[in-house]
């Protein structure tokens, strides 16, 4: 059986990938995908720690995170639609109006 530390390492890696994705990507949809990646990294971490602790509350938490990720994705895609309708573009370099 794979020890739980490997899963935690994997989740940490995915988390960092998601964070880097949010920082470097310039496409709205890719940024939204990166936040989803981060939330899924958390799911892996929860299941891994659940394996260590031998409890079920970690797995229950995963269901809540899944629900919340879905809700956030729905709102994010809705906002991207609204932005695309107004600007015909999804690149943050060209559509940003609010600046320091």
């Amino acid at each position: 059986m794979v020890p739980y530390e490997y899963y935690v390492a994997l989740s940490g890696l995915l988390m960092v990938l998601g964070l880097v994705g949010i920082i470097v990507r310039r496409n709205l949809i890719a940024m939204l995908l990166s936040t989803e990646l981060m939330l899924n990294a958390v799911n892996i971490a929860f299941v891994a720690f659940d394996m260590k602790v031998g409890d079920v509350s970690g797995q229950v938490f995963v269901f809540f995170i899944l629900t919340i990720a879905a809700a956030e994705a729905a709102i994010g895609l809705g906002l991207i639609m609204a932005i695309y309708r107004l600007k015909k573009d999804v690149n943050t370099e060209t559509i940003t109006e609010l600046k320091l």
């Binding site: 998601g18 939204l32 936040t35 939330l39 990294a41 958390v42 971490a45 919340i68």
Partner: peptide, 11 residues
């Protein structure tokens, strides 16, 4: 959303 992910990773 990233804040949420960070909080839940902390949890």
């Amino acid at each position: 959303g990233s804040g949420t992910a960070i909080i839940s990773y902390g949890i």
